[in-house]
């Protein structure tokens, strides 16, 4: 059966995930209201500004529906999306959805002058080919709860984590043509 992936489109790089999924022949739809989640088999929370996204999630009444969605369907969070998936954040301006047990550190890698790219090793595959990862004012993670798997590291710190059918990452796979991260997440769908 073909899957439909929702992409939260309140603010941020949502269109880039549409492009990544269409390279894989996967249908997606932009989500701006609760009702639009209904037909979706999974959800991507994209990069953007987490303060903006958190406000818009609350104002549009999507906070609880997104939490409920994550209890039965896979979620992938990127950058600001990763922050939204955390159980706590080092900044009270953001109210995370508490989808995975970890603490997010906003702008952990600094301001834009410190944004960078790096070739990283993916722990979840035998594929030796590194992934060229883009870190944009990237967040970090700490206080990983029991059961969380570290799927990739940079500089000895986790930058991609996963548990059950969910994954969260500090960097932006949608900014390149490399679709391995999206494919890995999709492989977790039953």
């Amino acid at each position: 059966m073909s899957k439909i992936i929702g992409i939260l489109a309140l603010q941020g790089a949502y269109q880039k995930h549409v492009d990544s999924l269409s390279r894989l022949g996967i249908e997606s739809r932009l989500i701006r209201k609760t009702a639009e989640l209904d037909d979706c088999d999974g959800l991507i929370i994209p990069g953007g500004e987490s303060t903006t996204m958190s406000l818009l999630i609350n104002q549009s009444g999507m906070y609880e529906p997104l939490q409920q969605f994550s209890q039965s369907k896979p979620v992938m969070g990127v950058c600001a999306g990763m922050i939204m998936m955390a159980s706590s954040v080092d900044d009270e301006r953001v109210t995370p959805l508490r989808i995975l047990p970890f603490k997010a550190l906003r702008n952990h890698y600094g301001r834009q002058v410190n944004s960078f790219t790096a070739d990283i090793r993916l722990n979840f595959t035998d594929d030796e080919e590194p992934l060229h990862a883009h870190f944009i004012r990237a967040p970090g993670v700490t206080d990983l709860g029991a059961g969380i798997e570290e799927l990739a590291q940079y500089d000895h710190s986790p930058i991609m984590i996963g548990m059950n059918k969910h994954i969260a990452l500090s960097f932006h796979p949608e900014l390149t043509a490399d679709t391995r991260i999206h494919q890995y997440w999709l492989s977790k769908f039953s």
């Binding site: 603010q11 790089a13 950058c79 960078f116 790096a118 070739d119 883009h134 590291q153």
Partner: peptide, 26 residues
């Protein structure tokens, strides 16, 4: 592996990357 890459193309890519993150916003 796990090394920072610093080329003109990558420098430009991370600049455009931030612009991508601002989309849909004010």
């Amino acid at each position: 592996m796990n090394e920072k890459v610093d080329t003109i193309q990558d420098n430009f890519a991370v600049k455009v990357g931030l612009a991508e993150m601002l989309k849909g916003g004010a």
